[in-house]
């Protein structure tokens, strides 16, 4: 190995090999994946190579995954800038590999198509905290919203002994004028984290958006390749 061009060729092709094998091939297979209806129906006029009717999406049915509401997109930005994904994954492993489904982290394994609408995919590689792929299914509605706000303000309020840091800087303490604000946090009675009387804790816009994002994380639909078991 004395010649620069020969050595360079070896060095080039070594990496080109995996670049082609993993990245380019992966992109060819997955780079054009689109949302789909939950099930496919046989086509009336198209047939596949073996003469069977081609399976196509039924017309008029909803496509999944659905686009997230605008406020959730803003909330996702907060999630990104706080680095939540360094402790929370967003992927459900299949039944029989880990205990993701048994822990209620999602009704089915997530698949590539679940992520096609996301500009930044936050699969995550740590579970210092639980997986969040289906958080909005586990904590739904107003009760889920209240729980998440208290939990973000200080996790110890609803999850004593947690190692998650408090995000109290996303909330504002203010004096109650006339009536308490509609969105003020409802602390459990005698909570040591509650504000002094006459004051209340209200979420900032960023906290509101972050919670809407968390509630939008839901695996509540089937895909042709990943059905929610009955």
């Amino acid at each position: 190995m004395k010649s620069l061009p020969l050595l360079f060729c070896g060095i080039f092709f070594a990496l080109a090999f995996s670049f082609t094998g993993l990245i380019v091939s992966g992109h060819i297979q997955l780079g054009a994946l689109t949302p789909s209806t939950e099930t496919l129906v046989p086509s009336e006029d198209q047939v596949d190579a073996s003469g069977q009717p081609l399976m196509v999406m039924a017309e008029g049915e909803t496509l999944f995954p659905r686009p997230a509401p605008g406020i959730a997109e803003i909330g996702k930005q907060v999630y990104i800038e706080m680095g939540c994904m360094y402790c929370h994954s967003q992927q459900v492993r299949r039944q029989g590999f880990g205990a993701d489904i048994d822990r209620g982290w999602g009704p089915r394994a997530t698949v590539a198509r679940d992520y096609v609408l996301q500009d930044r995919v936050l699969l995550g590689t740590m579970r210092t905290g639980p997986d969040l792929a289906h958080l909005g299914g586990r904590y739904a509605g107003d009760a889920g919203r209240d729980w998440n706000h208290l939990h973000l303000y200080n996790p110890q309020i609803v999850s004593k002994g947690s190692t998650m840091p408090p995000f109290a800087f996303l909330y504002r303490e203010q004096e109650i004028v006339n009536e308490p604000s509609a969105n003020a946090l409802q602390f459990p009675p005698d909570s040591e984290y509650a504000p002094k009387s006459g004051y209340e804790i209200v979420p900032t816009r960023r906290a509101e958006a972050l919670v809407e994002y968390l509630l939008s994380l839901k695996i509540d639909y089937s895909l042709p390749e990943a059905r929610i078991p009955e």
């Binding site: 995996s18 670049f19 992966g26 780079g31 994946l33 996301q118 500009d119 930044r120 995919v121």
Partner: peptide
């Protein structure tokens, strides 16, 4: 120029 879906984590870990 974000690639679609899980091509991102694939590239990320490569």
């Amino acid at each position: 120029f974000p690639a679609r879906g899980v091509v991102q984590p694939l590239t990320n870990w490569w």
